[in-house]
Amino acid sequence: MTQHIATDVAIVGAGPVGLFAVFELGMLKLSSVLIDALPEVGGQCTALYPEKPIYDIPAHPAIEAGALITQLEEQIQPFAAPRLLGRQVNGLSGKAGAFTLTTDRGDVIHAKAVLVAAGAGAFGPNRPPLDGLEAYEASGAVQYYVRRREDLRGKRVVIAGGGDSAVDWALALKDIASVSIVHRRARFRAAPESAAQLDEAASSGAIEMVIPYQLHRLAGADGVLSAVEVATLEGEVKSIPADVLLPFFGLSMDLGPIAAWGLQSEKHHVTVDPATCRTSLPGVFAIGDVATYPGKLKLILQGFSEAAMAAHAIFPVVHPDQALHFEYSTSKGVPG
């Protein structure tokens, strides 16, 4: 149903950072609305890896991505921010203090400030260039996201990639599946502790390390995978028995209509002032993975910090004649 909403801040993106922005804005008594192209909140945490453990959220030694979203939803419940889900923002007009946003569903949002928390934008996996890939994707023999860890129990799983996703899933699946991890070099681009755990698991035989190899060919028929063939740069080929291939080569990023707003950008990321998260367009702010500045770390943790800084920088845009007196949440509590 088409909606017309007037609010203080329009948040474009309902991933973990966008959700936490509702809290930080609410603590300053600023109203907000969440807009996201996905049909549910949570961004990549919900859509791609709800059961993936996250280890760098303060006070949570480990928390699954889906559980993190559940906790964030509970935290922002007092602020009752409307949600426009399954919608893409396709228009922005006006100026700071008086923006109008429109969506592809015909919604109209009047906001005094805009906060872009679009994560990776319109994201999709970087697919390996393998013949016959589509048939294996259709059957589920090739998967780019793991929504239910239990679906892979007892399977022969080949993981390809050298980043955090590849290493984290190898560790998460080693106790329920036969796991082989393929990478073109011995060094992994993962958190040091995770890389150390991977080495330990490989030494104990819990994970097979297939190094230095790259994906070469898929063996099977009618979408049923029987083996993954890998090759060295010298052309040496090896066959790994497999039921499922998980290629983790990152996400392709597309800002979509946001790219037409005229924001200063760098390599598909929006450039912001690190002290305020202001973009080059007055009244528009950006936080989370979509934002970039010197020293930026793509961590949910840092996105949470940016949400707090942006909220305080947004306050004078919404209330230009009011002074903001900073108070700790322990002193003032959560507004009722």
Rank of each mutant, 00 (worst) to 15 (best):
A231M: 14
H269V: 01
D243G: 12
E234V: 09
E208I: 09
M209L: 15
E266A: 00
V237C: 06
T232E: 03
E229S: 03
V244W: 06
S226F: 05
K267G: 00
L245V: 04
D254V: 02
P257M: 07
V244K: 03
I207F: 13
Y213P: 04
Y213N: 02
D222M: 07
A221N: 12
P257F: 08
Q214T: 12
I211H: 03
A242E: 03
P247T: 08
E234P: 03
E236P: 01
L245T: 04
A221M: 13
L245P: 12
A259S: 14
E234Y: 10
P241I: 15
H216T: 08
W261L: 10
E236W: 06
Q264T: 14
L246G: 02
E234G: 14
I258L: 14
Q264V: 07
G235D: 07
A260N: 11
L251V: 09
S252L: 07
M209R: 15
W261N: 04
L215A: 07
R217G: 01
Y213G: 01
F248G: 00
K238A: 10
K267N: 08
I211K: 00
A219D: 12
G235V: 11
L225D: 01
M253R: 15
V237D: 06
A219V: 15
S265G: 08
L246I: 08
Y213M: 00
G250K: 05
K238H: 15
I258W: 03
S252W: 03
L263A: 00
A259K: 13
L218S: 06
G235R: 10
I240Y: 05
G262A: 10
A242G: 06
D243T: 10
V224E: 03
P212S: 02
P257D: 05
V230S: 00
V228D: 01
I207H: 11
H216E: 12
A259D: 07
S239H: 10
G262P: 12
V224F: 02
K238T: 13
A259P: 05
A231N: 02
L255G: 05
G223K: 08
A221L: 14
L255H: 06
V210W: 14
I240W: 08
L215K: 11
Q264R: 15
D243W: 11
A206I: 13
G262I: 14
